[in-house]
Write a protein that binds this DNA or RNA. Structure first.
Lengths: 252, 252
DNA sequence: CGCTTCATTGAACCCACTCAAAGGCCGTGG
DNA sequence: CCACGGCCTTTGAGTGGGTTCAATGAAGCG
């Protein structure tokens, strides 16, 4: 039995005291395994749990009236799924796992308890929510103002960076086990055009395409193509922690 | 002197006890006035304050290398600006006011103090952050999977709904004082095509165009065009509050 | 009263989409 | 073990929604 995944996620940011450690652990129900392509929840269903990803990949998406699909976000090991549903009674998007995966559910409304009990955890949760927003913003820019080439390169790099952080042992941080259909739906492209764009990048030796997904071969080259700046993925945990120490002083 | 804008914003969600009231008020520095088109901060600058909007409109945006611009979000009275920068030392986007506006700055790191002092406020801030994410998600879908017509109609309706909530006295909730340049940059369209699309909607008596912005004439008609579902703007405050009452019981 | 920004219209172009079809891979069942 | 069907990938050809370029008018402002 390894460390629970949410603990690992938070320890990535800061050292946890014993109390905080126990508090987090108590939230986490036993992990559950899901085979590839399992739908975890659908839009409109009651929203009662968050999940953390212990292994495998998941994605949230929305089905459109015309039959198309928009993939909203991808989740890799260590990620927390569903924070944005905190504000809502019902799910605002669908969730499925795209590889065999192990997820850890924990009850949504216990988050309030955590907020009350631990100042550090409260701030860390807020920081994670803020980072999630920054990721969404960057994806927004991707969809609004970049060409297909740039979109693809940028997205691949973002996932690469996120894998770097999540990476423990088993994962190849340059390999994304995603179908082209999924990528296309994430980037707002047709599968046909996504494929052509990937072929192009493959010709330039920037990526390789296998039956099990896409692999980043030349990150620097991709950065060039995408105009990628990873700053939006680098949280300022230190600054936040420092302020936690400061703000016991009287307010100005 | 009216009630401070952040108080008003939070009281929209829940009744505030005296303590919470004072706590919020103490955070808020004196309001500052900015003339139309003033840039409040730029990407890369130190991130030290949030703002609340007391009057007027603001927008956050990112300038692209090729000279184009992506507008990320618009802010109307009552909104909180900059929560997503909580995680970062430096600004990840630019902010400007698009009309004459009065904003209330409050120091970013005092948020941690609020979290510690008030359970209710902590949860409300988290709820607002989650709602902000939902808004971004919907804008993501807008950019990824809708036609120009749908994009425009959907965006206008979203802002209309947000105005409905903010609306006090002076504002016409169907009027958006935004240039077409701004709208185009928000929707990932060229100004030329945005203009043509607006003309089209005007022909159909769904909107009217004036020198001072766009006005929604027929919301039902626009809903038809956009396939608009306002659910993502309706937070479940009651559910959250109820859980605040519950979670003093031992954890399951 | 000129300068700048915004709105509007026309014309040509192009990036990405749609439609269509074929090939590869894999799981399943006969 | 092979045959079948489904899903994904790949490629070709034609189309179209939205872009770019360009120019004009209108409005606000110093």
């Amino acid at each position: 039995m390894t460390t629970s995944c949410i603990i690992r996620h938070f320890e990535h940011y800061a050292e946890l005291a014993g109390d905080d450690h126990d508090l987090l652990t108590s939230l986490e129900k036993s992990p559950q395994d899901y085979p590839r392509n399992t739908v975890i929840w659908n839009q409109g269903q009651q929203s009662e749990h968050f999940f953390t990803v212990q292994s495998g990949w998941a994605c949230s998406y929305r089905n459109m009236e015309d039959g198309s699909r928009q993939v909203l976000d991808l989740y890799v090991p260590g990620d927390i799924i569903g924070l944005r549903e905190f504000a809502f009674r019902r799910r605002v998007s669908n969730l499925m796992v795209v590889t065999d995966a192990r997820l850890c559910p924990f009850p949504k409304y216990h988050l309030s308890e955590v907020f009350q009990s631990s100042r550090l955890l409260c701030n860390l949760f807020f920081l994670i929510a803020a980072r999630d927003q920054a990721v969404l913003v960057e994806r927004l820019i991707n969809l609004g103002r970049r060409t297909a080439r740039e979109k693809v390169a940028h997205f691949l790099l973002e996932m690469g960076h996120r894998l770097d952080k999540a990476c423990m042992d088993v994962y190849d941080c340059n390999h994304l086990p995603l179908t082209q259909v999924l990528l296309a739906d994430a980037l707002g492209l047709s599968t046909v055009h996504l494929n052509r764009t990937l072929q192009e990048l493959k010709q330039e030796r920037l990526v390789s395409l296998g039956p099990d997904g896409t692999t980043l071969l030349d990150r620097d080259g991709l950065v060039e193509v995408a105009g990628f700046d990873p700053e939006y993925l680098q949280e300022d945990v230190d600054g936040m922690l420092k302020s936690l120490g400061k703000n016991v002083s009287p307010m100005v």
